[in-house]
Nucleic acid binder design. Structure first.
Lengths: 152, 152
DNA sequence: GCTAAAATTCAGAAATTTCAGAAGACTCCT
DNA sequence: AGGAGTCTTCTGAAATTTCTGAATTTTAGC
Protein backbone atom coordinates (compact mmCIF):
# COMPACT_ATOMS: atom_id res chain seq x y z
CA UNK A 1 0.00 0.00 0.00
CA UNK A 2 2.85 2.35 0.76
CA UNK A 3 4.30 1.21 -2.52
CA UNK A 4 1.29 2.59 -4.31
CA UNK A 5 1.56 5.90 -2.50
CA UNK A 6 5.21 6.13 -3.40
CA UNK A 7 4.54 6.01 -7.10
CA UNK A 8 1.60 8.31 -6.81
CA UNK A 9 3.95 10.81 -5.20
CA UNK A 10 6.42 10.20 -8.01
CA UNK A 11 3.83 10.94 -10.68
CA UNK A 12 2.77 14.08 -8.88
CA UNK A 13 6.34 15.28 -8.82
CA UNK A 14 6.58 14.56 -12.53
CA UNK A 15 3.68 16.91 -13.15
CA UNK A 16 5.44 19.69 -11.27
CA UNK A 17 8.63 19.10 -13.18
CA UNK A 18 6.67 19.30 -16.41
CA UNK A 19 5.29 22.68 -15.47
CA UNK A 20 8.83 23.66 -14.59
CA UNK A 21 9.85 23.20 -18.20
CA UNK A 22 10.86 19.56 -18.57
CA UNK A 23 9.27 17.40 -21.24
CA UNK A 24 6.62 15.10 -19.90
CA UNK A 25 8.51 11.88 -20.46
CA UNK A 26 11.77 13.29 -19.12
CA UNK A 27 9.96 14.43 -16.02
CA UNK A 28 8.39 11.03 -15.41
CA UNK A 29 11.72 9.29 -15.93
CA UNK A 30 13.41 11.67 -13.51
CA UNK A 31 10.76 10.85 -10.94
CA UNK A 32 11.63 7.17 -11.30
CA UNK A 33 15.29 7.92 -10.72
CA UNK A 34 14.36 9.75 -7.57
CA UNK A 35 11.82 7.33 -6.14
CA UNK A 36 13.24 3.95 -7.04
CA UNK A 37 14.37 1.78 -4.15
CA UNK A 38 17.37 0.55 -6.14
CA UNK A 39 20.72 2.29 -6.31
CA UNK A 40 20.68 2.33 -10.09
CA UNK A 41 18.17 1.70 -12.87
CA UNK A 42 18.20 0.53 -16.46
CA UNK A 43 16.15 1.77 -19.39
CA UNK A 44 14.11 -1.40 -19.34
CA UNK A 45 13.18 -0.86 -15.72
CA UNK A 46 12.07 2.67 -16.42
CA UNK A 47 9.96 1.52 -19.35
CA UNK A 48 8.31 -1.16 -17.21
CA UNK A 49 7.68 1.19 -14.34
CA UNK A 50 6.10 3.88 -16.50
CA UNK A 51 4.43 1.54 -18.95
CA UNK A 52 5.84 3.37 -21.96
CA UNK A 53 7.80 2.38 -25.03
CA UNK A 54 11.55 1.85 -25.14
CA UNK A 55 11.82 4.65 -27.66
CA UNK A 56 10.30 7.16 -25.28
CA UNK A 57 12.66 6.14 -22.50
CA UNK A 58 15.63 6.40 -24.81
CA UNK A 59 14.78 9.98 -25.65
CA UNK A 60 14.08 10.91 -22.05
CA UNK A 61 17.33 9.44 -20.73
CA UNK A 62 19.27 11.18 -23.46
CA UNK A 63 17.81 14.50 -22.38
CA UNK A 64 18.43 13.92 -18.69
CA UNK A 65 22.00 12.98 -19.43
CA UNK A 66 22.59 16.05 -21.58
CA UNK A 67 21.44 18.42 -18.87
CA UNK A 68 23.46 16.62 -16.24
CA UNK A 69 20.66 15.37 -14.01
CA UNK A 70 21.63 11.71 -14.24
CA UNK A 71 24.83 9.84 -15.03
CA UNK A 72 25.73 6.62 -16.77
CA UNK A 73 27.61 4.27 -14.50
CA UNK A 74 30.78 2.43 -15.47
CA UNK A 75 29.13 -0.73 -16.71
CA UNK A 76 29.92 -3.65 -14.42
CA UNK A 77 30.06 -6.22 -17.18
CA UNK A 78 26.36 -6.09 -17.76
CA UNK A 79 24.67 -5.94 -21.09
CA UNK A 80 22.38 -3.17 -19.94
CA UNK A 81 23.55 0.33 -19.17
CA UNK A 82 22.93 1.49 -15.63
CA UNK A 83 22.05 5.07 -14.69
CA UNK A 84 21.45 6.98 -11.50
CA UNK A 85 20.52 10.41 -10.24
CA UNK A 86 23.51 12.69 -9.78
CA UNK A 87 24.20 14.05 -6.34
CA UNK A 88 24.21 17.60 -7.61
CA UNK A 89 21.09 17.11 -9.69
CA UNK A 90 19.00 19.74 -7.96
CA UNK A 91 21.59 22.45 -8.07
CA UNK A 92 22.00 21.63 -11.74
CA UNK A 93 18.28 21.76 -12.39
CA UNK A 94 18.02 25.05 -10.56
CA UNK A 95 20.87 26.52 -12.56
CA UNK A 96 19.60 25.43 -15.94
CA UNK A 97 16.18 26.78 -15.12
CA UNK A 98 17.96 30.06 -14.61
CA UNK A 99 19.49 29.93 -18.04
CA UNK A 100 16.40 31.95 -18.73
CA UNK A 101 17.91 34.75 -16.67
CA UNK A 102 20.84 35.00 -18.98
CA UNK A 103 18.73 35.11 -22.11
CA UNK A 104 16.44 37.69 -20.57
CA UNK A 105 19.44 39.88 -19.87
CA UNK A 106 20.56 39.65 -23.46
CA UNK A 107 17.08 40.41 -24.70
CA UNK A 108 16.99 43.54 -22.58
CA UNK A 109 20.35 44.71 -23.88
CA UNK A 110 19.30 44.13 -27.46
CA UNK A 111 16.17 46.15 -26.85
CA UNK A 112 18.09 48.99 -25.25
CA UNK A 113 20.21 49.22 -28.36
CA UNK A 114 17.13 49.86 -30.49
CA UNK A 115 15.82 52.73 -28.36
CA UNK A 116 16.85 56.28 -27.51
CA UNK A 117 17.02 57.64 -23.99
CA UNK A 118 13.91 59.78 -24.39
CA UNK A 119 11.84 56.72 -25.23
CA UNK A 120 9.79 55.27 -22.38
CA UNK A 121 10.79 51.82 -23.59
CA UNK A 122 14.40 52.72 -22.84
CA UNK A 123 13.67 53.17 -19.15
CA UNK A 124 11.65 49.98 -18.98
CA UNK A 125 14.32 47.94 -20.71
CA UNK A 126 17.03 49.41 -18.50
CA UNK A 127 15.10 48.50 -15.41
CA UNK A 128 14.71 44.97 -16.76
CA UNK A 129 18.41 44.71 -17.56
CA UNK A 130 19.44 45.89 -14.09
CA UNK A 131 17.24 43.29 -12.44
CA UNK A 132 18.55 40.34 -14.40
CA UNK A 133 22.11 41.57 -14.11
CA UNK A 134 21.68 41.55 -10.36
CA UNK A 135 20.23 38.04 -10.39
CA UNK A 136 22.90 36.70 -12.69
CA UNK A 137 25.50 37.83 -10.18
CA UNK A 138 23.72 36.53 -7.12
CA UNK A 139 22.57 33.08 -8.20
CA UNK A 140 25.98 31.45 -8.57
CA UNK A 141 26.80 32.77 -5.13
CA UNK A 142 23.60 31.21 -3.83
CA UNK A 143 24.49 27.80 -5.22
CA UNK A 144 28.01 28.07 -3.88
CA UNK A 145 26.70 28.77 -0.39
CA UNK A 146 24.56 25.64 -0.69
CA UNK A 147 27.46 23.49 -1.77
CA UNK A 148 29.66 24.72 1.06
CA UNK A 149 27.01 23.76 3.52
CA UNK A 150 26.98 20.21 2.18
CA UNK A 151 28.97 17.55 4.04
CA UNK A 152 30.59 16.09 0.94
CA UNK B 1 14.71 50.70 -39.83
CA UNK B 2 15.44 50.85 -36.15
CA UNK B 3 11.73 50.49 -35.71
CA UNK B 4 11.88 47.14 -37.42
CA UNK B 5 14.75 45.97 -35.24
CA UNK B 6 12.88 47.04 -32.15
CA UNK B 7 9.99 44.72 -32.88
CA UNK B 8 12.24 41.94 -33.95
CA UNK B 9 13.87 42.18 -30.55
CA UNK B 10 10.42 42.19 -28.98
CA UNK B 11 9.42 38.99 -30.76
CA UNK B 12 12.65 37.32 -29.76
CA UNK B 13 12.02 38.20 -26.14
CA UNK B 14 8.54 36.78 -26.48
CA UNK B 15 10.01 33.44 -27.51
CA UNK B 16 12.21 33.38 -24.42
CA UNK B 17 9.31 34.25 -22.19
CA UNK B 18 7.35 31.42 -23.76
CA UNK B 19 10.05 28.95 -22.89
CA UNK B 20 10.04 30.43 -19.41
CA UNK B 21 6.50 29.19 -18.95
CA UNK B 22 4.26 31.97 -20.27
CA UNK B 23 1.64 31.22 -22.87
CA UNK B 24 2.60 32.32 -26.34
CA UNK B 25 0.10 35.11 -26.65
CA UNK B 26 0.74 36.37 -23.14
CA UNK B 27 4.43 36.48 -23.88
CA UNK B 28 3.96 38.43 -27.10
CA UNK B 29 1.66 40.89 -25.38
CA UNK B 30 4.16 41.37 -22.57
CA UNK B 31 6.83 42.14 -25.14
CA UNK B 32 4.60 44.88 -26.53
CA UNK B 33 4.19 46.36 -23.06
CA UNK B 34 7.94 46.40 -22.71
CA UNK B 35 8.91 47.72 -26.12
CA UNK B 36 6.17 50.21 -26.92
CA UNK B 37 7.23 53.84 -27.12
CA UNK B 38 4.05 54.95 -25.41
CA UNK B 39 3.57 55.20 -21.67
CA UNK B 40 0.46 53.05 -21.78
CA UNK B 41 -1.26 50.80 -24.27
CA UNK B 42 -4.80 49.67 -25.03
CA UNK B 43 -6.03 46.27 -26.10
CA UNK B 44 -6.69 47.56 -29.58
CA UNK B 45 -3.12 48.75 -29.94
CA UNK B 46 -1.79 45.37 -28.87
CA UNK B 47 -4.05 43.60 -31.33
CA UNK B 48 -2.90 45.88 -34.15
CA UNK B 49 0.75 45.54 -33.27
CA UNK B 50 0.65 41.74 -33.12
CA UNK B 51 -1.90 41.27 -35.86
CA UNK B 52 -4.06 39.03 -33.71
CA UNK B 53 -7.71 38.97 -32.72
CA UNK B 54 -9.24 40.98 -29.92
CA UNK B 55 -10.23 37.76 -28.21
CA UNK B 56 -6.66 36.59 -28.00
CA UNK B 57 -5.53 39.90 -26.56
CA UNK B 58 -8.29 39.82 -24.02
CA UNK B 59 -7.16 36.47 -22.71
CA UNK B 60 -3.52 37.46 -22.66
CA UNK B 61 -4.13 40.71 -20.81
CA UNK B 62 -6.28 38.90 -18.28
CA UNK B 63 -3.44 36.49 -17.58
CA UNK B 64 -0.82 39.22 -17.29
CA UNK B 65 -3.04 41.11 -14.89
CA UNK B 66 -3.65 38.06 -12.74
CA UNK B 67 0.04 37.36 -12.27
CA UNK B 68 0.78 41.00 -11.53
CA UNK B 69 2.99 41.82 -14.49
CA UNK B 70 0.84 44.67 -15.79
CA UNK B 71 -1.71 47.00 -14.22
CA UNK B 72 -4.88 48.66 -15.38
CA UNK B 73 -4.67 52.42 -15.09
CA UNK B 74 -7.40 54.59 -13.61
CA UNK B 75 -9.22 55.39 -16.82
CA UNK B 76 -8.83 59.09 -17.61
CA UNK B 77 -12.23 59.52 -19.18
CA UNK B 78 -11.41 57.32 -22.15
CA UNK B 79 -13.58 54.60 -23.46
CA UNK B 80 -10.69 52.24 -23.83
CA UNK B 81 -8.92 50.74 -20.88
CA UNK B 82 -5.26 51.60 -20.57
CA UNK B 83 -2.62 49.25 -19.22
CA UNK B 84 1.10 49.40 -18.53
CA UNK B 85 3.97 47.27 -17.30
CA UNK B 86 4.32 47.33 -13.53
CA UNK B 87 7.56 48.63 -12.07
CA UNK B 88 8.07 45.46 -10.08
CA UNK B 89 7.17 43.21 -12.98
CA UNK B 90 10.50 41.41 -13.12
CA UNK B 91 10.72 40.70 -9.45
CA UNK B 92 7.17 39.40 -9.69
CA UNK B 93 7.94 37.21 -12.67
CA UNK B 94 11.02 35.86 -10.94
CA UNK B 95 9.09 35.10 -7.78
CA UNK B 96 6.24 33.32 -9.49
CA UNK B 97 8.71 31.25 -11.46
CA UNK B 98 10.03 30.19 -8.12
CA UNK B 99 6.65 29.02 -6.98
CA UNK B 100 8.04 25.86 -8.48
CA UNK B 101 10.54 25.74 -5.64
CA UNK B 102 7.79 25.60 -3.07
CA UNK B 103 5.96 22.81 -4.83
CA UNK B 104 9.17 20.85 -5.26
CA UNK B 105 9.77 21.08 -1.54
CA UNK B 106 6.34 19.71 -0.83
CA UNK B 107 6.81 16.93 -3.35
CA UNK B 108 10.03 15.90 -1.61
CA UNK B 109 8.40 15.85 1.79
CA UNK B 110 5.54 13.76 0.50
CA UNK B 111 8.01 11.30 -0.97
CA UNK B 112 9.98 11.09 2.26
CA UNK B 113 6.81 10.08 4.04
CA UNK B 114 6.41 7.08 1.75
CA UNK B 115 9.90 5.70 2.37
CA UNK B 116 11.85 4.20 5.23
CA UNK B 117 15.31 5.32 6.27
CA UNK B 118 17.02 2.21 4.89
CA UNK B 119 15.66 2.93 1.42
CA UNK B 120 18.04 4.65 -1.02
CA UNK B 121 15.13 6.78 -2.15
CA UNK B 122 14.92 8.17 1.36
CA UNK B 123 18.41 9.66 1.13
CA UNK B 124 17.77 11.06 -2.34
CA UNK B 125 14.51 12.67 -1.32
CA UNK B 126 16.06 14.12 1.81
CA UNK B 127 18.82 15.66 -0.24
CA UNK B 128 16.24 17.13 -2.54
CA UNK B 129 14.22 18.53 0.34
CA UNK B 130 17.25 20.15 1.94
CA UNK B 131 18.15 21.88 -1.30
CA UNK B 132 14.74 23.40 -1.92
CA UNK B 133 14.36 24.31 1.73
CA UNK B 134 17.57 26.26 1.46
CA UNK B 135 16.44 28.01 -1.70
CA UNK B 136 13.04 28.84 -0.31
CA UNK B 137 14.74 30.64 2.55
CA UNK B 138 17.23 32.50 0.42
CA UNK B 139 15.13 33.74 -2.48
CA UNK B 140 12.96 36.23 -0.60
CA UNK B 141 16.14 37.66 0.84
CA UNK B 142 17.54 37.96 -2.66
CA UNK B 143 14.55 39.92 -3.89
CA UNK B 144 14.61 42.11 -0.81
CA UNK B 145 18.23 43.00 -1.46
CA UNK B 146 17.27 43.99 -4.99
CA UNK B 147 14.44 46.18 -3.85
CA UNK B 148 16.61 47.94 -1.28
CA UNK B 149 19.09 48.77 -3.97
CA UNK B 150 16.38 50.43 -6.05
CA UNK B 151 16.04 54.24 -5.89
CA UNK B 152 12.28 54.24 -5.39
C1' DG C 1 32.44 -13.55 -36.78
C1' DC C 2 27.74 -14.73 -35.21
C1' DT C 3 23.79 -14.24 -32.36
C1' DA C 4 20.65 -12.23 -29.31
C1' DA C 5 19.58 -8.50 -26.29
C1' DA C 6 19.45 -3.63 -25.84
C1' DA C 7 19.46 0.99 -27.50
C1' DT C 8 18.54 4.44 -31.08
C1' DT C 9 16.13 6.61 -34.75
C1' DC C 10 12.29 8.14 -37.35
C1' DA C 11 7.76 8.43 -39.51
C1' DG C 12 3.16 8.76 -38.48
C1' DA C 13 -0.70 8.79 -35.01
C1' DA C 14 -2.69 10.80 -30.98
C1' DA C 15 -3.33 14.32 -27.78
C1' DT C 16 -2.77 18.76 -26.20
C1' DT C 17 -2.38 23.55 -26.88
C1' DT C 18 -3.44 27.79 -29.21
C1' DC C 19 -5.92 30.93 -31.93
C1' DA C 20 -9.63 33.28 -34.62
C1' DG C 21 -14.30 34.45 -35.18
C1' DA C 22 -18.92 35.22 -33.59
C1' DA C 23 -22.19 36.24 -30.20
C1' DG C 24 -23.21 38.44 -26.04
C1' DA C 25 -22.29 41.80 -22.10
C1' DC C 26 -20.83 45.90 -20.56
C1' DT C 27 -19.75 51.01 -20.50
C1' DC C 28 -19.73 55.61 -21.64
C1' DC C 29 -21.62 59.36 -24.01
C1' DT C 30 -25.46 61.84 -25.67
C1' DA D 1 -33.01 55.18 -22.58
C1' DG D 2 -30.43 54.50 -27.10
C1' DG D 3 -26.40 53.49 -29.54
C1' DA D 4 -21.55 52.98 -30.71
C1' DG D 5 -17.56 51.05 -29.38
C1' DT D 6 -14.93 47.97 -26.36
C1' DC D 7 -14.28 43.85 -23.82
C1' DT D 8 -15.32 38.93 -22.64
C1' DT D 9 -16.50 34.19 -23.38
C1' DC D 10 -17.00 30.15 -25.96
C1' DT D 11 -16.39 26.75 -29.67
C1' DG D 12 -14.31 24.66 -33.67
C1' DA D 13 -10.23 24.36 -36.36
C1' DA D 14 -5.33 24.58 -36.99
C1' DA D 15 -0.80 23.97 -35.42
C1' DT D 16 2.36 22.21 -32.38
C1' DT D 17 3.94 18.90 -29.33
C1' DT D 18 4.43 14.21 -27.70
C1' DC D 19 4.34 9.28 -27.95
C1' DT D 20 4.44 4.86 -30.03
C1' DG D 21 5.86 1.05 -32.99
C1' DA D 22 8.89 -0.82 -36.25
C1' DA D 23 13.16 -0.87 -38.54
C1' DT D 24 18.10 -0.17 -37.83
C1' DT D 25 22.31 -0.01 -35.34
C1' DT D 26 25.16 -1.17 -31.56
C1' DT D 27 27.00 -4.09 -27.93
C1' DA D 28 28.31 -8.26 -25.15
C1' DG D 29 29.07 -12.92 -24.95
C1' DC D 30 29.95 -17.09 -27.24
Amino acid sequence: MSEKERWQAAERLALVLTEGGLQRMSARALAVFLFTDAETVTMGEIADRLGVSAGSVSGAVKTLLSVGLIERLPAPGSRREHYRLRDDAWATLFSTQNTVVHVMLQAAETGIATTTSDDPAHARLTRMRDFYEFMLNEIPDLIRRWQERQPG
